[in-house]
């Protein structure tokens, strides 16, 4: 079938079907209120949730840490009675800091996705940007999920190895080893999880972009 024939059929079809099939205003409003299931809309919602919860919990942890540092609270947390008051303050401070950084990073990414969604840039440029954004989302997901494990395992290992306070001996090497192993392991697990979640989409977008690359494919005679 020639493209010109298709054009005639298409034109006729458009006239027959679209001109008498307008959606009413109420239906449009109703559609606009419903929750989108699109990939980037879902990512945006997840970022909004992560940013909100991490921000609230992180701020709470920082306030609690300040109470411990300034002696307002003099008892360790009931969930970790083996920690001293100062150690509880330090671990709460670290947790709060990580959570607040995660919240800010998610908020920044959320705003970027929001801006990008409303973009009217040409398709090729948009695809290139969406690849970058998706890669950043994957990286953010990996680091924000993976950072807790080495921090907490390091803290537990420190508590287990150094009952008598931090000393520079072989135990310090063990501590570094445990923290490094935990970091690598959590990074690998988080990477695998994030690529399982978004890797397919990333490849799809790269495929579209490759299709639009003028250096790709057979030359025209």
């Amino acid at each position: 079938m020639e493209l010109e024939t298709m054009k005639t059929i298409w034109k006729k079809e458009s006239e027959e079907h679209f001109q008498n099939n307008q959606i009413e205003q109420e239906k449009i409003q109703s559609l606009m209120k419903s929750k989108s299931q699109m990939t980037f809309a879902k990512i945006k919602r997840s970022m909004q949730f992560k940013s909100g919860t991490a921000g609230i919990i992180g701020t709470g942890a920082l306030i609690l840490a300040a109470f411990y540092f300034f002696g307002v609270i003099k008892e360790p947390l009931s969930v970790a009675p083996f920690l001293s008051v100062m150690e509880t303050g330090v671990i709460l401070f670290l947790m709060g800091l990580i959570l607040c950084v995660t919240a800010v990073a998610n908020l920044l990414s959320y705003n970027r996705v929001k801006q990008f969604e409303q973009s009217s840039k040409p398709l090729k440029k948009m695809l290139s940007e969406s690849v970058t954004i998706l890669r950043n989302i994957i990286s953010l997901g990996i680091y924000s999920d993976a950072i807790f494990v080495p921090v907490f395992s390091g803290f537990i290992a420190y508590k287990w190895l150094f009952n008598d306070g931090l000393v520079s001996d072989i135990r310090l090497f063990y501590l570094v080893l445990i923290v490094s192993a935990a970091a690598v392991l959590s990074y690998v697990i988080a990477s695998r999880f994030m690529y399982q979640k978004h890797g397919g989409n990333l490849e799809k977008l790269r495929g579209y972009l490759k299709e639009l690359d003028s250096n790709n494919g057979i030359p025209v005679n």
């Binding site: 699109m38 990939t39 969604e117 973009s119 948009m126 969406s130 989409n201 799809k204 977008l205 579209y208």
Partner: peptide
Amino acid sequence: NLAFQRLRKT
């Protein structure tokens, strides 16, 4: 742009 961003049918 949105059709290409859609990526998955869910």
